[in-house]
Simulated assay, not measured.
Amino acid sequence: MEPRVKDDIHSSSPKREVEHTRDRPFSCGLCTKTFTRSTHLKLHQRTHTGEKPYICEQCGKRFALSSCLLRHNRTHSGERPYQCDRCDRAFSQSSSLKQHLRVQHNVEENEPFTCKHCPKSFKRAYHLKMHMRTHTGEKPYSCDECGRSFALSNAYIRHQRVHTGERPYKCDQPYSCDVCGKSFSSSSNVKTHMRIHTGERPFKCDQCGKGFSQLTHLKQHQWVHGDRGSVERLQCEGFGWVI
């Protein structure tokens, strides 16, 4: 009896092809695309036929999809249903609003929780809640020994070591953040770090208006615009030197 040879891992499986066809039974006769519904196939075929059944009554422009006509009609009506919750700007398309939030308010899509008092945004509601204390001044963690209060629990725990004498780490960073307790080797580093809590972004891009908390971040961003001259001419407002 001849030994059985297993099929090559890259060989096609008839069963898998049948299952794939069963999941997406509607296939295009002009390309390899398949669809789960016949209506999706019908709409797709317009990319091949050039059919554009939806016509604008104002200017006569034609569209393949009704949703495209709906968006186009806003150019005539002036309707702007997408309102920015950070300023008074409104937009006719959601993509324009997303771009506005990213450029003007430094809000990314993966950071949906935004602060109403500054440009900062967060991935989680809890982080926004902690950040809000930098604006409200809330410091719920109070030291029983000296009465000093802190916004974050980890800052309170670090402070307790002042009274207990506990020194788990070598002290080469004598400057600490009053908000989170993080330590630094110089006061200027504390000042830069505080921008994480305040949301301050003093370094602005003259090409798109996007702001950055550190000059080095702005320098890296300038390469997006391909303007090497601007990068080389960047001047630090805080120290008065030129890169």
Rank of each mutant, 00 (worst) to 15 (best):
Q93L: 14
S94E: 06
S94V: 06
S94A: 08
S95D: 04
S96I: 00
K98D: 04
Q99P: 08
Q99C: 12
L101K: 15
L101I: 05
R102M: 15
R102F: 13
R102Y: 13
Q104M: 09
H105A: 08
V107H: 10
V107D: 06
V107N: 07
E108F: 09
E109R: 07
E109D: 15
E109Y: 02
P112V: 00
P112L: 02
P112K: 03
P112S: 00
P112M: 02
T114A: 15
C115K: 11
K116E: 15
C118H: 14
P119G: 12
P119D: 11
F122Y: 14
F122R: 08
K123G: 14
R124Y: 11
A125G: 07
Y126D: 12
Y126I: 08
L128E: 03
L128M: 06
K129I: 03
H131S: 02
H131N: 01
M132W: 08
R133A: 11
R133H: 10
H135W: 01
T136N: 07
G137E: 13
G137S: 12
P140L: 02
Y141P: 12
Y141W: 08
C143S: 03
E145W: 02
C146D: 06
C146I: 02
G147T: 05
G147F: 09
F150I: 10
F150R: 04
F150M: 07
L152W: 03
S153P: 01
N154L: 14
A155S: 10
A155F: 01
Y156D: 06
I157N: 07
I157K: 14
R158A: 09
H159W: 14
H159Y: 06
Q160E: 10
Q160I: 08
G165P: 12
G165Y: 12
Y169R: 13
Y169L: 11
K170E: 15
C171S: 14
C171E: 15
C171F: 14
D172S: 12
P174W: 13
S176D: 10
C177I: 04
D178A: 09
K182H: 11
K182A: 11
S183V: 05
F184Q: 03
S185T: 11
S186F: 12
S186K: 12
S187C: 12
S187E: 13
S187N: 13
S188M: 02
S188V: 02
N189W: 14
V190T: 01
V190C: 05
T192K: 13
T192F: 10
T192R: 13
H193I: 01
H193G: 03
H193R: 05
H193C: 07
M194Q: 14
R195T: 07
R195F: 07
I196L: 12
H197S: 04
G199S: 01
R201Q: 14
R201S: 11
R201E: 14
P202K: 05
F203V: 10
F203A: 05
F203T: 04
K204D: 08
D206G: 00
Q207Y: 06
C208N: 03
C208P: 00
F212M: 00
Q214P: 00
